[in-house]
Lab assay of single mutants.
Amino acid sequence: MTYKAILNGKTLKGETTTEAVDAATAEKVFKQYANDNGVDGEWTYDDATKTFTVTE
Rank of each mutant, 00 (worst) to 15 (best):
F52H: 00
D47Q: 09
L12A: 08
D46R: 02
T2E: 09
G38C: 08
D36G: 06
N37P: 01
A48V: 12
Y45I: 01
F52Q: 00
L7N: 02
A23F: 12
K10C: 12
Y33I: 08
T55E: 06
T2S: 07
V54T: 02
I6W: 04
T11V: 11
D36E: 13
G38T: 03
Y45C: 02
I6C: 06
T16A: 12
N8P: 04
N37K: 12
A23V: 12
Y33M: 07
G41N: 03
K28G: 09
T53K: 05
Q32H: 06
E42H: 11
V21C: 13
D46N: 10
T16Q: 09
E56C: 07
D22E: 04
Y45S: 02
E19A: 08
E15N: 06
K50H: 12
T49A: 06
T18D: 02
T18C: 15
D40R: 13
T51P: 00
A48N: 11
K13F: 10
Q32V: 08
E27F: 15
N8G: 04
T25A: 14
K4H: 12
K10V: 14
A34D: 01
I6F: 07
T49Y: 05
T44H: 11
D40F: 15
T55M: 07
V54Q: 02
T16R: 10
T55W: 10
D47H: 11
T55A: 05
D36S: 09
K50F: 10
L12G: 07
T51G: 00
L7A: 03
G14A: 14
T18V: 14
K4E: 04
N8Q: 08
A20F: 03
T49H: 05
T55I: 09
N37M: 15
A26E: 01
A48Y: 10
D22I: 01
A48K: 13
V54M: 14
K28C: 10
K31D: 02
D40M: 13
T51I: 06
A20E: 04
E27W: 15
N8T: 06
K13R: 12
V54C: 13
T2A: 08
L12M: 14
G14Y: 14
K50I: 02
D47V: 09
A48G: 08
E19K: 12
A20M: 02
T2F: 09
Q32F: 05
T11I: 11
T16K: 10
